[in-house]
């Protein structure tokens, strides 16, 4: 299933990367520690996090993640948006906390 269908099913708000929603989602990872995500995420994962600063973009780009989901309605900082747009990384926003959105994503993807 691609990012676009997940955006629709989970009612995610698209902060950027609207044109990059076709990547196939292979799984998900929840984490706020960047080197944990570097070690344990895989290509095509959606990354669920509460981190909003621009360092999340490099992690998503290097690991070829399908996108980043910010929890609890968190908005990305402006330089995060700029970088993500330049790198073509979708940033999506949910009002739900991490546990809830991870559960819903797990049901869809696994």
């Amino acid at each position: 299933m691609n990012v676009s269908s997940i955006v629709e099913k989970l009612n995610l708000k698209i902060a950027c990367g609207r044109e990059k929603l076709s990547q196939n989602v292979t799984g998900g990872y929840v984490g706020d520690l960047l080197s944990d995500v570097m070690a344990n995420s895989r290509e095509g994962y959606l990354w669920i996090t509460r981190q909003t600063h621009q360092n999340i973009v490099a992690v998503a780009s290097l690991k070829e993640l399908a996108g980043i989901i910010l929890v609890q309605g968190k908005e990305p900082e402006s330089d995060t948006l700029e970088k993500a747009a330049a790198e073509g990384i979708p940033i999506l926003i949910t009002e739900l906390p991490a546990f809830d959105i991870a559960g819903k994503l797990y049901d869809i993807v696994s």
Partner: peptide, 15 residues
Amino acid sequence: EMGFGAGMGIPNIMN
């Protein structure tokens, strides 16, 4: 605060 400091960087490099 920026999400660093897990103490996993050097272990990641070694892996």
